[in-house]
Amino acid sequence: MNKAGERLYNGLVKENPTFVLMLGMCPTLAVTTSAMNGLGMGLTTMVVLALSNLIISLLRNMIPNRVRIPAFIVIIASFVTAVQLLLEAYIPSLNKSLGVYIPLIVVNCIILGRAESYAYSNPPVPSLFDGIGMGLGFTFALTCIGAVRELIGAGELFGFALMPDSFEPVRIFGQAPGAFFVLAALVALQNYIKNVRKKKGKSYEKIGSGCTEDCVNCGDVSCKKRFYDADAVDKGGQAIKSPSEKKSGKGGQATESSPEKKSGKVNQEQESAAEERGEKSAADNMQEQDRKGSMKNESPREAGHVAEKTQATEKEER
């Protein structure tokens, strides 16, 4: 039970996906026009995150390492579809206001990130609570941002008028540009805290380590939104080293030991990969990609990181 509490605290405060890690920014900006929308989106994401974490953790010994990303995506997409149908049936108003962003939960990097960095290498109960904790942290952050935007943009909170009549709502905060301004203020605050901590000699690496421009040094190898900066490409092979090094620090002991464990597992379970699912083409694809990577890379140590290796291959060829 202690473990569960620790995971909840971790998700809500220590590694809050929005305020600390800056992950999943697309939905954060798009749906926080009001506190209610933020709350709805956060809870929807939390349900998907907790359930997909639980299932991935239960299946972690069955999913071959090479096809794990497609497998995660299928599991996550299934839950998103289920949640979307439930929302359509029972809370149509929320479904309407969130619109296209519900199916897009699939590509939210928080979910795939947690699947990869926690659920795939930890037992079910902590994984479930990790999902709930991260989801609560996300919900809390979205609700806060939504509340600020609603308060400034419309003078209301959860639909109740709060501001005096003399307050003139700044409509722009409820619209698209306001989202950028609020996020800019948030990141500036993070930078400020980071600078202060740097001066005091405290740790600051985690702050803003998610989907900011710093993707080359991003600790989250699995983040699906990983992109290359032109400068990073120029640096060649060096650049990719840093994520893997950083990752072991970030994910804790659990992930540190996992690459070896997984690579041993791969060979036995490779056969079962082919017959397992309907998304064969994508799976084969990934396998081929990985094989390609391992031929060129010749570092068996890193059997774990499919995405990374393909990227490495790309770079070496250039």
Binding site: A184, V187, N191, N195
Partner: peptide, 11 residues
Amino acid sequence: ESFRGMPLVLL
């Protein structure tokens, strides 16, 4: 200092 990098881009 605090606005260097990402915040400025967002603005």
